[in-house]
């Protein structure tokens, strides 16, 4: 990999690094949120299935952090556990809590929110991964091929839940509609590259924000049509842009938990 590194111009490397952080932090945080659900899903079969998805997603995050390590940005575990919120590049959607309460006590998690967030996120990830398979950065293109194989099942899983709950009781429909509003409020930075837009797009690392948004909407259209609903519009921008290191307090809480043990001694072998 060092040979690859040698031929990268500083500007190109900077753009790759930024994009990798966005991808890594997104998967890392949403997988962390998924792991808080462990043991609490609506039924046992779902617990097994969704924890498998969280596990895959953590694996994807680990692959991206490893690509960063190979670019000599830092040790993968340090990058995952030690960077403060201001350096994190994940979307706001990925960091949001699962509902009221801390996972160690008696949280009141919202399954409708879990389904909508994960389905919309997985669909966004799908259009990104499809584009990344043609990335100008070969190691990333190769990773995208691997991620894509698992992502197929994640998307199928969340789509099944989404359609089923919206085709069911009034209570379920109400909860799902409320969850969709919450999720769309945070959807403004999901396809954003933040301040790095020109560099990331210009270097052909991935398709443009606009193209990806259009593909997400196109992929969602038949599903919403089957439910006789309109695809929600992706907001132009959100209050905070996670890609620029702007985050909510919910991220601070997540980072404190996920790094609690590692921070006892980051030099030690765990």
């Amino acid at each position: 990999m060092s040979s690859t590194e040698n031929v990268l111009s500083p500007e190109y490397k900077e753009a790759v690094t930024n994009l990798l952080f966005q991808l890594a932090d997104d998967d890392f945080l949403i997988s962390f949120r998924g792991s808080e659900w462990l043991g609490l899903a609506p039924h046992i079969e779902e617990d097994v299935a969704s924890s498998s998805i969280s596990q895959d997603t953590m694996g994807h995050a680990a692959m991206y952090y490893t690509l960063l390590e190979e670019l000599s940005i830092g040790k993968a575990d340090d990058l995952a556990h030690l960077r403060p919120a201001s350096e994190r590049k994940n979307s706001i959607l990925a960091e949001r809590v699962n509902g009221e309460g801390y996972y160690m006590e008696t949280p009141q998690y919202d399954w409708a929110y879990a389904v909508v967030r994960n389905f919309f996120y997985a669909q966004a990830k799908k259009v990104k991964i499809d584009s990344l398979r043609q990335s100008s950065y070969q190691p990333l293109a190769e990773t995208a091929v691997k991620v894509n194989m698992e992502l197929y099942y994640h998307l199928l899983h969340w789509k099944t839940w989404f359609v089923q709950l919206l085709s069911s009781t009034d209570e379920a429909k109400q909860k799902m509609t409320a969850a969709m509003e919450l999720v769309m409020k945070d959807f403004g930075d999901v396809f954003s590259y933040g301040n790095e837009k020109a560099a990331i797009e210009g270097n052909q690392l991935i398709a443009s924000e606009e193209e990806l948004k259009a593909r997400w909407t196109a992929n969602m259209t038949p599903i919403f049509e089957s439910l006789e609903m309109a695809v929600p519009a992706i907001p132009e921008a959100s209050e905070k842009n996670g890609r620029n290191g702007e985050h909510t307090e919910e991220l601070d809480g997540a980072l404190a938990t996920l790094s609690e043990v590692y921070k006892l001694d980051p030099v030690a072998v765990w």
Binding site: E36, I44, S51, A61, D77, A80
Partner: peptide
């Protein structure tokens, strides 16, 4: 301890483990 596991490797391991138990 799943969300707190102290490395990416340990996070993956313990997630898989607890999933098996379920």
């Amino acid at each position: 301890w799943v969300p707190k596991a102290p490395s990416l490797h340990r996070k993956l391991g313990i997630m898989a483990k607890v999933q098996d138990e379920m």
